[in-house]
Design a binder for these strands. Structure first.
Lengths: 334, 334
DNA sequence: ATGAAAGCGCTAACAC
DNA sequence: GTGTTAGCGCTTTCAT
């Protein structure tokens, strides 16, 4: 059997209180007994049970992460950075993939609460805020990342999506493109990006497709398909702005399929700057989200919240940044 | 405050034992009180504390997953499938990224034990088996996936790497290639794959590079670099077999950089069949590991172990399979 | 069919 | 400095 605090106390000839005190470095214990007990714990391979300690009201040092899909590099990179930060702060992460399904989110949050996690990070991208609201109502520590819930009073770290859209479109405009298409999935962040894009086009007196069609998911295939339609139309764009890197890769494939060379015949711009942008061929010019900082940021916010070191909720808005690689080029047509 | 079992017992006018029984569906409770208590729990938003229940010796229904790096698609896909399977079996996963670092692995296993996880899955790819040995010695439920530890008595699911290497080389040989290079990181699974590859070459009376150089990590860049060297040599290969998809993508890039078209001027073959193989351009011919089945497999093995439903350890060896896409072609040179 | 009570491993007053 | 003890929320005999 695993040794308990009683076992080490008995062996050390002291009370469990004393052992508890040396474990937690509290109270006044003589250097001598302290050392003796440490040695004993080592020898007996004693590990304090966080379950028991949690029952007395202390932390479990584990936090839940609700994320749509680890297969999406943006999310796996976010998860990784959250885990890293958590680890260095002494927390473990339990991962819950929601697949953009509000029901799964609800189920997981319930489970996580039963397990007494110290807090929950929501990275799920869908539009239903039921779980978040619920958690807030119950005063459960949460923080959200890469997703905005304008109507909720909650710690959040996200990027300025409007600016990202604006930057992207401006870059393309600066390159002389006149027909700039945008492809995106219909979610909040993308609608913001599209707003930014439209703003930039308007300022440049350029037209945009008022009939723009959304893509049903972020799969490469979907990007390829929609880009294909665009390229096959009577007035194909000379640049396509994809609202994430996967979609952008699909665009490149659609172009290549039609004998077009990127960026010579078509400029393509991505969003996120995940690893996919780097392994893309040619390497993708993209609007970078500071993924690492975002992960660190939410974790820090949540921990502060948990520890009660902070009494006013915050929204941390990081700024996206254009990363020029090799898929955009000055327009030379006509 | 969160309601406890006492709160609902009091409100229901029964003892906590009764409530406990309806929660767990044990003992004999009249339909009437059963219903009343369920209703009450609903109304009070009561959630049993798994921490408290764990303290009485029951499961925590959480299992730890040690994995090198979520940024590697093979591992994030494995993680995803493990999580899926766990979820449907009622388990949560706490993710621990080890970065191939034995010390991190040791630290995490210790932490996980303190948290009383029900079991641990090891997917870490490095060569040090200290943690695994330790865990086994302590009789802690573990299972390993995508990694073999020939000397250890432990539940394992992996693939036949030798066969994978053999299949890959055979495919290339069948296409008429005579100069077939292989690039890999120096780890156990790859050494097996290389054995298979050599075997195939030998059977076909083909030579292989006895001076073959290993790559230092699985990054695309490393693959590109080494492939570059190979292609620039005096007797460049007409086909390159990369021991994972990332490396293969690097190979394609190296080829493209030199004006070679894949597969026309160079066949390239990957390994794993992660999503990268599908988004690669052209789509990568690769040796597929049945990732989903592997994840499901370990999870099942581990759960059986935990529940004591199984008294003999197993090794489940799944077979890899060639997936032909568009990066390999019959040799037409000379 | 239901309840009393002991115990799971630990923390935190409080006493000595 | 160290020990005693009452919980923490739940499960589980064993009575009734």
């Amino acid at each position: 059997m695993k040794p308990t605090i009683y076992d080490v106390a008995k062996k050390a000839g002291v009370s469990i209180a004393t052992v508890s005190k040396v474990i937690n470095n509290t109270g006044r214990i003589s250097e001598k007994t302290r050392k003796k007990i440490w040695a004993l714990m080592e020898e007996m391979e004693y590990q304090p049970s966080v379950v028991a300690s949690a029952l007395t009201g202390k932390s479990t040092y584990t936090i839940g992460l609700l994320i749509p899909d680890l297969a999406n590099p943006f999310f796996s990179e976010i998860a990784r950075s959250i885990e890293d930060r958590g680890h260095s702060l002494g927390y473990n992460i339990v991962i819950c993939s929601t697949d953009y399904d509000p029901e799964k989110e609800a189920k997981y949050t319930s489970l996580l609460k039963q397990k007494s996690v110290d807090g929950i990070i929501l990275a799920s991208g869908f539009e239903n805020h039921k779980s978040a609201k619920e958690l807030i109502r119950q005063n459960f520590p949460i923080a959200v990342v890469a997703r905005e819930i304008p109507s909720l009073e909650v710690d959040t770290v996200s990027i300025d999506n409007f600016l990202g859209g604006y930057q992207g479109a401006s870059h393309l405009i600066g390159l002389g493109h006149k027909r700039i298409a945008i492809i995106a999935r219909d979610v909040w962040s993308n609608r913001e990006r599209i707003r930014g894009y439209k703003q930039a086009l308007e300022e440049a007196n350029l037209e945009f497709d008022t009939q723009m069609e959304f893509v049903k998911d972020s799969a490469v295939e979907s990007g390829k398909e929609l880009a294909g339609k665009l390229l096959d139309s009577s007035a194909p764009p000379s640049a396509i702005f994809a609202c994430n890197d996967s979609l952008a890769i699909g665009v490149i494939q659609a172009a290549r399929q039609r004998g077009l060379t990127v960026p010579k015949n078509l400029s393509v711009l991505g969003f996120d700057d995940t690893i996919w942008a780097k392994i893309s061929d040619p390497p993708l010019t993209t609007i970078a989200q500071p993924i690492r900082e975002m992960g660190y940021g939410v974790m820090d916010l949540l921990i502060q919240e948990i520890k009660g070191q902070k009494h006013v909720k915050q929204r941390l808005i990081l700024l996206p940044k254009l990363v020029e690689r090799e898929t955009t080029l000055a327009y030379t047509g006509e």
